[in-house]
Amino acid sequence: MNLLEVRNISLAFGGVKALNDVSFTIRKGEIFSLIGPNGAGKTSMLNCISGLYRPTEGSISFEGADITGMKPFKRAGLGIARAFQNIELFSHLTVLDNLMLGRHTKMKTGVLAGGFYWGRAQKEEIEHRKAVERVIDFLEIEDIRNIPVGRLAYGLKKRVEVGRALAMEPKLLLLDEPMAGMNAEEKEDMARFILDIHEEMGSTVVLIEHDMGVVMDLSDSVAVLDFGKLIGKGTPQEVQENPDVIKAYLGEEQFI
């Protein structure tokens, strides 16, 4: 079953075409990696899927419904969550508070009830707190739960960024370079968490990552972009053996 279908997506900024007629499908329950050289259009594609950008042409369907013109918050309500390449946390808030913000699409009580913190609002927050506690345990960040995010090491901030997306209990989790800037040990931990998210939580994962060893080890399917065009897709083995992919990464002269 296809969870997400991207059909003939093009995205232009004036005379610059960031994406050019890109199509692929993502099956429910897989880890799907989107790779390519810097400037290939990978983050632009995630922005189109999450709703930050509206494509110039083409369409995107989620669970069979067209979401091309849908606002980002409505896509979040459908179960599409995003962790950003550049950390987008609130540095003055604690880890716990940042994770609680990931539950905003599931909160039903109004501003008045929430402000007085009584009845249904109180019960609802208790339930959301339980969900966040499960994320904290899952990502092994119990000891930093009450520390302001701005005081954390970079690798822990990246983990909290992923945790906030996980707090939404996503059907589709978009991870934009979750291992960028990490050392070898931190990368190993993050790779383990991604596998556990996939296997234990049942989320479908879209991963952008430059470490090809990680991509080939984790992915069920891989799509390759170069200058906004899709130049290859398939299993990790098929992509590794694709001449166009080799050329894009190594350069035409070395390939010949």
Rank of each mutant, 00 (worst) to 15 (best):
E199K: 15
S221M: 10
S203M: 10
G213D: 13
E209I: 03
A180V: 11
D189P: 00
V206D: 08
E177S: 00
G234N: 10
R192Y: 07
M179C: 15
V206K: 04
M182N: 10
D196T: 08
V205T: 09
I231V: 13
M190N: 08
A184F: 11
E209Q: 06
D217W: 00
L218G: 12
E188C: 05
L195E: 10
G181Y: 05
P178M: 08
V222I: 15
K187H: 05
V205N: 07
A180H: 06
V206L: 15
M212V: 07
E186C: 13
D211P: 15
E209W: 01
D211G: 09
M190A: 13
V222Y: 01
I208Y: 01
D211A: 03
N183P: 13
T204V: 10
D220H: 15
V215R: 03
G234P: 04
A191I: 11
G213C: 06
M216F: 12
M216Q: 07
D211C: 04
P178C: 09
V205D: 06
L174Q: 09
V214Q: 02
T204H: 08
M179R: 02
E200P: 00
A223L: 10
M179F: 02
D189H: 13
V215I: 12
M201Q: 11
E177D: 03
K233N: 09
L173N: 06
R192I: 05
E200H: 11
L225E: 03
E186K: 09
E188R: 14
E186D: 12
P178R: 04
K233R: 13
K233P: 01
D176L: 05
R192L: 14
L230M: 14
E209M: 02
D220L: 04
I197N: 02
E199P: 00
D176G: 05
I194V: 15
L175F: 02
V222N: 02
A184C: 03
A223D: 08
A223E: 09
S219K: 03
D226Q: 13
E200I: 09
V215M: 07
E186L: 11
A184R: 13
H210L: 02
M182C: 14
